[in-house]
Amino acid sequence: MILQTRGLCKRFGGVHVARNIDFGIEAGEIHCLIGPNGAGKSSLFRLILGAHQPDSGTILFKDEDVTRLPPFARIRKGMSVKFQVPGIFKDLSVRQNLVISFQHHLHGHDLEATIQRVVAFAGLEGLEGKAAGTLSHGRQQWLEIGMAVGVEPSLLLLDEPTAGMSPEETRQTGEMLRVLNAQGVTILAVEHDMSFVQQIADRVTVLHFGEIFAQGSVQEIISHPGVADIYLGASDD
């Protein structure tokens, strides 16, 4: 297991966003986190990152307890994240975005080579000098994925990576993630687009009211009667 949570609990006032969550991600898999709105997907995501502190429970990353570490320290240990709303530096150039993302572990020719590689990977050739905020929505998402993968993370966390993308952009993003996964990156994606989940996921965890409702392969989840009730049935009309 590259990441494990044990008995993770978090409340905001009277709302339990995480109830006793025991959750794990195997190294090398693409794991999708699904569930209806308000199920606690984003909260679990933020707990894993350290943006929220749990009320109780522990988080192990590569067998090390990271529960009390601030987000930047978890990133330094090999996590990397892409947010739902493009978390890029909009007024800075694409190139500057990438330089800032990679400069703490790469310098000189290595930095340059990585920037070129990521630019090609994210389909941003010829746009290096453009202000990132002027790119199309899909390209902004890809730029952020590029920023997240250039650091060669062992665990890539994606919060709705295809939000706001066209079907074609969504398909390309799926291919992008498959390529990354083949290169050895473990991926955890919060997602609600089931066709996208079917395209990429090795395993799926379903959250409901802050609890793990079901877990298994895509086929198991799709054929799970309860899941269809709480989630798929509700959104598949």
């Binding site: 947010f83 978390g87 530096f89 800032i100 400069q103």
Partner: peptide, 18 residues
Amino acid sequence: NVLVAIRENPERAEMLGY
């Protein structure tokens, strides 16, 4: 670069490991 990153988007700067 890091100072400018913090000015532009502090949360992203933190999530890049700074």
